[in-house]
């Protein structure tokens, strides 16, 4: 069957069958490079996407559930100022950079930065839990996200006042 969905702001039309997982369609048909289909049971976190703005594992999701939904991967955010700010904060707080989970961690960070209200600590920890990354100290992630959020808000206020 043919399905349509919005991927990183662009409308995509793909042909799928009932047996396909969303991750396979995103990688093979849509050319997304930031995802990896390693565990196929949501335990590695490398398949994280934003589905209508909320985190979801694309490896345990059948492809047909993408129909008419809005999907975002980290590629959607990498050219934004917020992304640079978040990555800089993550580097500042965590000396150990986690290459395997970078995309998932950055995606969760960007999801939190999109919020209109400042994210709460448990919300940030909840988001980090989705990545299943063991090398990043949760406290560092919380600090990095909150700092990035604060800086972003200050920048926005300055921009608005100008």
């Amino acid at each position: 069957m043919n399905i349509e969905f919005t991927l990183n702001g662009l409308q995509h039309k793909v042909t799928i069958t009932s047996v396909e997982r969303a991750i396979d369609v995103l990688i093979k048909q849509c050319g997304i490079k930031s995802l990896a289909a390693e565990c196929l049971d949501g335990h590695c976190g490398k398949c994280l996407i934003l589905l209508d703005g909320k985190s979801a594992y694309s490896c345990i999701m059948p492809a047909f559930l993408l129909r008419d939904r809005r999907v975002e991967t980290i590629e959607h955010f990498t050219k934004r100022h917020e992304y640079d700010l978040l990555v800089a904060e993550l580097h500042r707080y965590s000396s150990q950079s986690c290459s395997g989970y970078h995309s998932a961690i950055a995606l969760m960070g960007m999801m939190l930065l999109q919020k209109t209200k400042a994210p709460q600590t448990d919300e940030i920890l909840d988001a980090l839990e989705n990545t299943h990354c063991n090398c990043l100290d949760p406290a560092d992630f919380v600090a990095a996200v909150l700092n990035a959020y604060q800086k972003l808000r200050t920048t926005r206020k300055q921009y608005e006042s100008e």
Binding site: L51, K54, S55, L65, D126, E129
Partner: peptide, 8 residues
């Protein structure tokens, strides 16, 4: 489950 599962 984690929030990524609870969202779906």
């Amino acid at each position: 489950a984690t929030s990524a599962v609870r969202n779906v």
